[in-house]
Amino acid sequence: MPLISVIIPAFNAAPTLETTLRSVMNQNFVDIEILVIDDGSDDETVAIAQRLAKEDSRIYVFSYPNGGVSASRNRGICHAQGEYLSFIDADDLWTSNKLAAQYEALQIHKKAAVAYSWTDNIDAEGNLVQEGIRTQAAGYILPELLQINLLQNGSNPLIRRFAFETVGGFDESLLNADDWDMWLRLAQHYEFVLVAEPQVLYRRSETSKSAKVLRMEQHARRVIDKAFAQAPKQLQSLKVKSLANLYKYLAYKALQGVPSALDRQRVLSALRFLFTSYYYQPVLLKKWKPLVKMTLRSLVCLSFPPNHAEKIIAHFIPSHMPF
């Protein structure tokens, strides 16, 4: 049996799936199986996966009706044979040493059930656009993880299989933040170990629509409320910072790119997110300059026609505001 099972949820992933698969196929750690879980795709996703399966016997393809990414991950867990599990979305990439480094970290730190790495953000062409969070959190990381999703995405950790028997599968009712929910549940029971290298390349979309950001708000709030309902009493004071961080992130997502005249609702949502973050953490007005820049960006988009707004933003307000 393979030591590590890699699970790839894939829905209409034809444009990126082969690149993602090859980043897994080219791992230095070779004792793996690669499970592509087709989630009801109607493009060439299955054909691409099956073609690569002929090239690499470690690849297995399973097709299901559409159920969402959490359902696909859970389906993959059911098929997995490995002692360790890792997940990668069908548009993300790994560096070639990702699995090897995380596996080694777990062998050194026997108490840890989860190994994770740093993430960098890439664009549609695979170019680096922004460094991710350079955390140093390890061991009992629940306090840090309650405040922000340090792992940043679902393509990051390597997890001992028995940990899922303790916490259960991914919550299929969550359409966003389902990965954060899982990491929080794991952190309640197990230690984490960090591989302090950027080994996960997360493909960032610049086309988030207001409806998706609003859905993200709804489901992330559910995750936060559930996590703090189960968190120890001494950590309850962290909830306001968790909410402030969430609304900073939502504002950032809403303002990616220069909204057009058709995106007025998106800009209004961004302003609401910004003022909500101020409400939960007023000190941000004085100490977090990018948040102020986002507020100005929103006001410019609301006050000027799209072409003029784009010029003003390009000259006076940087488009890449680190978060």
Rank of each mutant, 00 (worst) to 15 (best):
163 A>E: 09
163 A>N: 13
163 A>K: 09
164 F>N: 13
164 F>I: 10
164 F>Y: 06
165 E>I: 01
165 E>T: 08
166 T>S: 14
167 V>L: 13
168 G>M: 12
168 G>A: 09
168 G>P: 12
169 G>D: 08
169 G>R: 14
170 F>E: 12
170 F>Y: 14
171 D>V: 08
171 D>R: 06
172 E>G: 15
172 E>W: 08
172 E>M: 07
173 S>I: 05
173 S>P: 13
174 L>Q: 05
176 N>Y: 15
176 N>G: 07
176 N>F: 15
177 A>F: 10
177 A>C: 11
178 D>K: 09
178 D>T: 15
178 D>I: 13
178 D>M: 14
178 D>H: 15
179 D>M: 10
181 D>W: 12
181 D>P: 04
183 W>E: 10
183 W>T: 09
183 W>D: 06
184 L>S: 02
184 L>W: 08
185 R>H: 05
186 L>V: 08
186 L>G: 04
186 L>C: 06
187 A>Q: 06
187 A>V: 08
187 A>I: 02
188 Q>D: 08
188 Q>M: 11
188 Q>H: 14
189 H>G: 14
189 H>C: 15
190 Y>D: 03
191 E>I: 08
191 E>Y: 13
192 F>P: 00
192 F>L: 00
193 V>K: 09
193 V>M: 00
193 V>C: 12
195 V>F: 14
195 V>H: 11
196 A>E: 15
196 A>M: 11
196 A>W: 10
196 A>F: 03
196 A>S: 13
197 E>F: 14
197 E>T: 14
197 E>M: 07
197 E>P: 15
198 P>K: 09
200 V>R: 01
200 V>M: 06
200 V>D: 10
201 L>H: 09
202 Y>G: 00
204 R>H: 06
205 S>Q: 06
205 S>W: 04
205 S>Y: 07
206 E>Y: 11
206 E>C: 07
206 E>Q: 11
207 T>P: 04
207 T>M: 13
208 S>G: 09
208 S>D: 14
208 S>K: 15
209 K>I: 11
210 S>C: 10
211 A>G: 05
211 A>P: 08
211 A>V: 14
212 K>C: 07
213 V>C: 05
214 L>G: 05
215 R>W: 07
216 M>H: 12
217 E>G: 01
218 Q>S: 02
218 Q>V: 03
218 Q>Y: 12
219 H>C: 01
219 H>L: 02
220 A>M: 01
220 A>H: 05
220 A>T: 03
220 A>S: 05
220 A>Y: 06
221 R>Q: 03
223 V>T: 03
223 V>I: 00
224 I>E: 01
225 D>P: 02
225 D>T: 03
227 A>L: 04
227 A>M: 02
228 F>R: 00
229 A>F: 05
229 A>T: 04
229 A>E: 06
230 Q>G: 05
230 Q>Y: 07
230 Q>T: 07
231 A>S: 01
233 K>M: 10
234 Q>D: 04
234 Q>R: 08
235 L>D: 02
235 L>M: 03
237 S>T: 05
237 S>Y: 13
238 L>D: 00
238 L>F: 07
239 K>T: 00
239 K>W: 07
239 K>V: 02
239 K>Q: 03
240 V>R: 08
241 K>F: 00
241 K>Y: 00
242 S>K: 01
242 S>C: 01
243 L>C: 01
243 L>T: 00
243 L>H: 02
